[in-house]
Nucleic acid binder design. Structure first.
Lengths: 147, 147
DNA sequence: GCAATAAGCTTGCAGATGCAATGATATTGC
DNA sequence: GCAATATCATTGCATCTGCAAGCTTATTGC
């Protein structure tokens, strides 16, 4: 197996494992899923804390219908709002509310804690920095880079 | 944001993006999903090309019921077989068949091609090697390391 | 201007997945 | 040996997701 294939496999496996661990913690502690956390995070990183649904779908690698259905309950509990575009009545923005920001901050603590566990053993600053640089290159081209 | 959190975010985002690209190719070309590909891969890496369902579930980070339901159609089309344990009648092994191996080899070509695209631009051998080492550490402790 | 096309969002439907309950078999405590 | 407990696999149910169709609104071609 060539090294590129090895890297692709390890990337997917490492990501899956981290996601699995986060998944339990997020639903138990915060009542939102990892995907919902990412949705909030994308909005927080965006101008005016809002994004058109199509754009959000692209950044999250999900379909437009999934965005519609993910946003509905979050809007219901006040974490998200809805805005319309003045010039284009087709566009419907998803907006992060103040309550949404609060929830996001809480969830970020859990995320950071889990990240700490993941890299706590025998990782030097230099290694963390090198990994960040290499992974950074992989996500550099994407529209929805959260880092 | 600390560097550990940055790395965790980038790991998840890079994994998601690669998975999204693989997803379309796999279903279109081979008629199996990325998850089904991983199922075949886990079996191929195992002794006697077989695993108990519970063990397969752990390695894939899915529930036991998902293994039952993923294996059923693959068994129906002949990619997987079923074996029982002589000593423990509760155990039901999932076995990779010859047709399954053939399908796996086909799918591996697609995976390797996508891995090549992912790392084709300005990645030196040294960088690929370093990334492999760092990601390797993340997946080292897991029971189902595919590399 | 108006018809044709495109784009954004939502909804119906089908497939995938997890949790909890169930049934079958093993193991343990006594 | 037998009852209590644990383990493995499956199934019912609820949830999440994508695709295709449909509705609304913009844009384009003429």
């Amino acid at each position: 197996m060539d090294i590129q294939t090895t890297n692709a496999l390890r990337l997917l496996q490492a990501g899956d494992e981290l996601r699995a661990k986060l998944s339990g913690e997020f639903s138990a502690i915060h009542g939102i899923s990892v995907n919902e956390y990412f949705l909030l995070l994308h909005l927080e990183k965006s101008a005016r804390n809002r994004l058109a649904r199509v754009e959000l779908a692209k950044r999250m690698h999900v379909s437009a219908s999934t965005v519609t259905r993910m946003a509905a309950p979050l809007e219901k509990i006040g974490l998200l709002g809805r805005e319309v575009d003045e010039r284009d009545a087709r566009l419907s923005y998803v907006v992060l509310t103040k309550a949404g920001k609060t929830k996001l901050i809480e969830a970020q603590a859990t995320f950071t804690k889990r990240a700490g566990y993941t890299f706590q053993d025998r990782w030097t600053e230099e290694e963390l920095s090198k990994l960040s640089e290499l992974l950074g290159r992989l996500v550099a081209g994407t529209a929805g880079n959260l880092t």
